[in-house]
């Protein structure tokens, strides 16, 4: 395990929509869980039989003072096990391990105004941001797009808490989120934060750039749900371990399953903590992270094993 961890117990597990389950967790030793800033995530470690699953989830903002942490987990349609495990097996009394909160999607506290945009489960960090901004009386507006109100987690909550600062867009009611129009009328010094499906993030950022928003004012939660791929052979040169990375397994998980300690933090291709040097690759490295530069990716000397993999026969790492 990399970094500080907290042993927790699930004290409430509730399906808040047909596909979203909310977990409320407290420390097993009764200690107060540390506070955190909006946009923070935690990595959940779950034991599923022989297999250890680690997934990163944004922390909800509604329990800042409550001494408990909450996450909302969407059942991913092509889950490699993590979200399905939470939905099928994690209930009240279940014991888990959390990493301390880490923030890779922070608010810019110098902004004059904040525009928050969320799609679907992307509301989890965005809702925490609204909480924090409301608490310090900062100027913000929240735009939240969902398929239908039943599936949109927290719709009622948010409207009740922030009133006119929240706009809801329900696609089943033909309500469209026109980001372009919203971005047209913002005062200079505004910052934009977006979290949702990859396609939505891309569209929102493209609109902002086309309207002349500077890069430094744009913030997106670029967490990737690590996806699987074709299996390949893995050799760790220093440890002398040879194993296989399965199609539902990430490279990092295969390293861990072989009993080798490797550093990590976000497990979503963002933070750079798990970077490993490549000795050789018999095939093409499939870089899926947002961390390495284009030049670094092309050079092929480094890989982020939490999301990236090999399209080919064998990968040899200096580990």
């Amino acid at each position: 395990m990399s970094g500080e961890t907290i042993a927790v117990r699930v004290v409430a597990a509730e399906a808040i929509t047909p596909t979203i389950k909310r977990l409320r967790m407290v420390a097993r030793d009764g200690a107060r869980l540390p506070p955190y800033s909006a946009g923070s995530h935690t990595v959940l470690t779950m034991a599923s039989g022989e297999r250890v699953i680690r997934n990163a989830y944004s922390l909800l903002g509604s329990t800042l003072a409550g001494g408990a942490y909450e996450v909302a987990v969407l059942r991913a349609p092509r889950s490699r096990g993590g979200s399905a495990f939470v939905h099928d097996h994690v209930g009240e009394g279940h014991e888990l391990t959390l990493s301390v909160p880490i923030n890779l999607f922070p608010l810019n506290r110098r902004a004059r105004h904040h525009v928050l945009v969320a799609g679907g489960i992307g509301i989890t960090p965005i809702g925490a941001m609204a909480d924090e901004l409301a608490k310090v009386n900062a100027s913000f507006e929240l735009h939240y797009a969902v398929r239908n109100e039943a599936r949109g987690a927290f719709c009622g909550d948010l409207a009740g808490r922030y009133g006119e600062r929240v706009r809801l867009y329900v696609s089943e009611r033909q309500e469209r989120l026109h980001v372009h129009d919203i971005l047209m009328r913002q005062p200079l010094g505004t910052h934009l934060y977006v979290c949702g499906p990859e396609g939505m993030i891309g569209n929102v950022l493209a609109d902002a750039r086309a309207l002349g928003w500077p890069e430094t004012s744009l913030h997106a939660e670029r967490f990737l749900a690590a996806a699987g791929g074709a299996p390949f052979a893995l050799r760790l040169a220093k440890s002398g371990v040879a194993t296989t990375v399965g199609e539902d397994q990430t490279l990092l998980e295969a390293i861990e399953a072989a009993g080798i300690e490797a550093p990590f933090s976000c497990r979503g291709g963002v933070c750079g903590e798990c970077e490993l040097p490549v000795v050789s690759a018999d095939g093409e490295i499939d870089h899926r992270d947002h961390y390495l530069s284009a030049e670094e990716k092309a050079a092929g000397c480094k890989i982020m094993p939490c999301v990236s993999r090999l399209r080919g026969r064998e990968l040899v790492l200096d580990l």
Binding site: L183, M184, R185, Q186, P187, L188, G189, L211, G212, W213
Partner: peptide, 10 residues
């Protein structure tokens, strides 16, 4: 000018 300008102003 800066206090009255909108995003998209360079």
């Amino acid at each position: 000018s800066l206090s009255q300008a909108a995003m998209g102003t360079l």
